[in-house]
């Protein structure tokens, strides 16, 4: 049984296309053409894709109601509007934001990131090069040696944080603040030390890392 998504879009053509595309990617999709019954349908869903321009109740109102009823349910806003105030208004409750016209691959990628971030892992292990990551069981296994890799608390937290933002580049500040919960202090080497130890445990060759990529001048990334 696939992951259930709630999709609210009034335009029939776009709706049809996105609906089919998402089903093609293995999701179960409930498509509503107005926000009226959104709250009831949101109950069994893992993620809501919401269009801003809706007849009757607008997307912002629907989104706010859903967020109030289900605070942990991620909401991805689709909008034809790009003005800054829309972005701010939308992002106050929405977890992500995508403007039309969008590429279906981009939508799929964002859905995946949001689901991962909200903890909706599939039972299948995540394959990262020579590693198998069992997110539900917090287990990492080296496929080649079949050995489990044991990480310290902080190492595990850093790795999980990167995996939850799979494919995204994260800056040092973002990782530090996401894991430690404190503001990043300039020139703090703690994170770099942790990442060095983490690489020694995870990488085949810590000198040329494949799992945790360094994006020069920007930050780190874990890519599937």
């Amino acid at each position: 049984m696939g992951i259930h998504l709630l999709y609210i879009e009034d335009d029939a053509e776009i709706g049809n296309w996105v609906h089919e595309d998402l089903i093609g990617r293995g999701y179960e999709v409930t498509w509503l053409q107005s926000g009226e019954h959104a709250l009831e349908k949101a109950a069994g869903s893992r993620l809501v894709i919401l269009d801003v321009m809706l007849p009757g109740l607008d997307g912002f109102t629907v989104g706010q109601r859903i967020k109030k009823a289900y605070p942990d349910l991620p909401i991805l806003m689709l909008s034809a509007r790009t003005s800054i105030d829309d972005k701010l208004e939308g992002l106050q409750f929405a977890d992500d934001y995508l403007t039309k016209p969008f590429h279906p691959d981009e939508l799929a990628a964002r859905i995946e990131v949001l689901l991962r971030r909200s903890g909706s892992f599939s039972s299948e292990p995540l394959v990262l090069k020579h590693l198998l990551v069992y997110e539900r069981e917090n287990r990492i296994v080296n496929k080649e040696t079949d050995e489990e890799i044991l990480l310290t608390g902080k190492q595990f937290q850093i790795f999980t944080y990167l995996v939850r933002h799979l494919g995204q580049i994260l800056t040092k500040e973002q990782i530090y603040e996401g894991v430690w919960g404190d503001p990043y202090l300039d020139g703090d080497k703690t994170l770099m030390v942790h990442i060095r130890y983490l690489r020694e445990k995870l990488e085949r060759d810590p000198a040329s890392p494949e799992i945790i990529e360094t994006i020069r001048g920007v930050g780190y990334r874990v890519k599937a």
């Binding site: 776009i14 296309w17 321009m53 034809a80 403007t99 016209p101 969008f102 590429h103 279906p104």
Partner: peptide, 20 residues
């Protein structure tokens, strides 16, 4: 402007979907 934006982008999205 918001309506214009919506009215311009919606057909654009549809055209794009057909291109995909």
């Amino acid at each position: 402007i918001a309506n214009l934006s919506h009215d311009l982008r919606t057909p654009l999205t549809v055209v794009r979907s057909h291109v995909f």
